[in-house]
Design a protein around this nucleic acid. Structure first.
Lengths: 290, 290
DNA sequence: GACGATATCTGACTAAAGTCAGACATATGC
DNA sequence: GCATATGTCTGACTTTAGTCAGATATCGTC
């Protein structure tokens, strides 16, 4: 009666009808769902027509017609791509922006309604995060970013906050050898953020130095995305970046309080080495030859 | 960037695309989605044509045509309702049952696949339960059942297991004044189970007695469904049943370890009274005049 | 500058979903 | 028994979604 499969299926049924309700609420603006979806994709700053087509899984003929109908309504304008005149770029007109905002308002109000009807807000949100990460796993993109970008700084903030929670003595960034952002930018190093559907859910830094090794720093995965192999993917990406930069030896330090991290390193070919710095927080040190 | 509304919306997006994938996988059997949905509804023992129409939100003309096409395929048979010949009852033929099982197999395999791809199985399942309960809240039906039914016994089993976990001294049903099932069946009393999409997720018993009061017993809500007001709905239903049975005074006993329950009683018009039995487990006693 | 590849568009379809008015049989209340 | 309500069915639609073959323009490359 309560086997895992029927629990998953109960969830599927609940969610199917919820999605149906969400879809029909979009019909209120007098536009078929297909056109509304395209308008929303453009509003969410997807401009390239081909990209939208892929994202929504549409046939090119259908896509073209939907674009035309939005254009006829005066909601979008299309122009040729600057570098490649075959490709088309779609943008919202002021009227289109108003219409897009109306759809946004519907979505936001529904989300707010849903939350306001339940007392277990935080638990619900955490559950939703977890499931969204699990479902969107293949949609999680690892992208190299500047460590001073908003997304990167959000990740780092969460990372520091988590260290502060998990270390008995707390954590103060200033006491740690905070890597200079420039050391985590090409050509010296790299900083990789995992983005899931617009939200940053993980990061890792590759800190180049003038010594004979580079360091892996700031590996973090959002609690909602743990257990899905994202840490490993981030580490792989960082090691790849290191290869590209011609780095032969990687080191990292960590703390035994972060048990998952230690496990990950051991399982992916890192070997423990003696302390190689005097940072007060780490008590475990690893090295890997690429 | 991480406000609650955008977290809900991220979840919605993830789930929308997952549902789309699920839907298209049903197309493989050479039948349009509408017909497949009707077949599945019938297979899940929804026989009444009107009920199916409501459940799937279909127009009566469309519904009729879908039924006809399934009938032409030899998958279902329709007969008139025994009590009301205007209504029609649909049932699967042997061929229909085979076809239905094929759809079930698709759904089951997908659910199994999903689970097998993730390491955090239990956390995922718990999150899914919570969300399914939250979404399906309006779909939760409270139905009076025999306390010896499978559903009721499942609830009671979970209830006892939870007491055993939460009481320091453990819990042994035999030491408690276990109400005779007959006391929780009309006309003496009642037993109400909350069913969400086929799964029992809560219960409450109304135990009639020969004394001047009846008792509320066995109030339980599945962990995945807590915080959604189900406890209150169950209590309301039990009090309604008591009214119908002409009961004027209700009592109940509980334990201060079950803090949520105590809060609920206080907030819904119950007043604390002195101990009225010698059961070893409860230490809090309430009464309410209807 | 010719050639194949690529991106989009157009026209001519089909299939599926949904709508609406009215027909028909059956139930219910007076 | 009659009027009215209810549940289903039928026919005649419309709209939406999706498919496919080719037209057109542009790009990159030799």
């Amino acid at each position: 009666m309560l086997d895992p499969v029927s629990r998953v299926r109960r969830f599927n049924r609940a969610v199917t009808s919820a999605v149906g309700a969400l879809d029909t609420s979009f019909l209120g603006r007098g536009r078929p769902l297909g056109a509304a979806r395209v308008l929303n994709a453009i509003g969410h700053s997807r401009a390239d027509v081909g990209e939208i087509r892929d994202y929504l899984g549409l046939d090119s003929g259908l896509m073209s017609r939907l674009l035309r109908s939005l254009e006829d309504e005066g909601l979008i304008e299309t122009t040729a791509h600057a570098d490649d005149a075959r490709r088309r770029i779609a943008n919202l007109t002021p009227a289109g922006k108003r219409e897009f905002n109306a759809y946004e308002a519907i979505s936001n109000r529904q989300a707010k309604d849903f939350l306001s009807h339940h007392t277990q807000r935080e638990a619900l949100l955490a559950a939703m995060d977890l499931i969204a990460s699990a479902l969107g796993r293949d949609g999680t993109a690892l992208t190299e970013m500047d460590p001073r970008s908003d997304e990167a700084r959000y990740c780092l903030g969460e990372y520091y906050a988590e260290l502060a929670r998990r270390f008995k003595q707390g954590f103060d960034v200033k006491l740690s050898r905070d890597p200079d952002a420039k050391d985590m930018v090409r050509p010296r190093g790299s900083f990789i953020v995992a983005m899931s559907d617009g939200l940053p859910i993980g990061c890792v830094g590759l800190k180049g130095s003038s010594s004979e090794f580079a360091e892996i720093k700031r590996l973090w995965v959002a609690p909602a995305a743990r257990g899905l192999g994202l840490g490993r993917r981030l580490m792989d990406a960082a090691e790849n970046a290191a290869c590209e930069l011609g780095i032969a030896v990687l080191r990292l330090d960590t703390n035994s309080a972060l048990a998952e991290a230690g496990q990950l390193y051991r399982r992916t070919g890192w070997s423990e080495i003696p302390r190689f710095n005097d940072d007060p927080y780490p008590d475990l040190f690893f090295e890997k030859h690429l």
